[in-house]
Amino acid sequence: MSTKIDDELFGSADLQWEKLKNKLFLGICFTASLFGVVVLVFLLADVAYEAGIGIVEFDINIGQFLTEGGRRDPEDAGFYAAIVASVWLMALTAVMAFVVGVGSAIYLEEYAPDTRITRLIEANLANLAGVPSVVYGLLVLAAVVNGFGTGSILLAGAIALALLIVPIIIVSTQEALRAVPDGLRNGSYATGATQWQTIRQVVLPAAIPGILTGTILALARAIGETAPLIMVGILFTARRPPGPLDSFSAMPSQIYVWAAQPQPHFHHLAALGIVVLLAFMLTMNAVAVFLRNRYEREL
């Protein structure tokens, strides 16, 4: 009798199936979560492999690659002009996006009254963050490149990238400002400071590590953006490093030009370009993480 009860309670076939189902489910979920990691490894390995083949079999000279401008002939082609263009883009984008993004966030977080206009601005931010990057390119193409007649210059590309990352910077800056305890603000107001004095001398210094972290992460996203630059500029291979008012081909657009070519030599140049691009992004992310860890314990 007792064994029968045991069976019913703990050993029924149903429970066996339940257990199996659970194991299966865990297996599926675990495999799924590993899938992303495996793809990431393959992706990085593929890029490294293709770049390696380029160096070994196609005799791409890394020194030449980093110091020469673009060329029609893959034998002589380099990445230098594209690197300089991207650095210029980042510098100009950083200045514009930082001013507008941080300024907006301060307004929304510290000054804005809870009115319909404020809510409209906030709702619009979420919408802007979902606009495809290629559309920002169209906006700048029509409004700046042709509207103001600047032509396809680097500065116009920077404007497109800045508009693209402003919503990201606003959101991360708002978070950083929210993390500043209200006690500090009250302490400042009670000392007879105006709101602006409080923001400039107490709130911003306390929030600046978070703001910088967010800005750098946003820039790391911008440096890999290709579509808006293609809309703004002309796809071509730049020989000489550009200034802000020159036409340009930045790292990602140069990679696209190379990757779209049928000759294998260009293909490996693209891989090497990707290595450089990823190295830039990695560095920027590392700086951001460093900043965050360095200042996290304060406050």
Binding site: G36, L40, E225, T226, I255, I274
Partner: peptide, 17 residues
């Protein structure tokens, strides 16, 4: 990190891998 990789790199990954 997957979300942070530039989309152009995914394009390259598609045609080369």
């Amino acid at each position: 990190v997957l979300a942070g990789i530039p989309t152009i790199v995914y394009g390259f990954f598609a045609i080369s891998f």
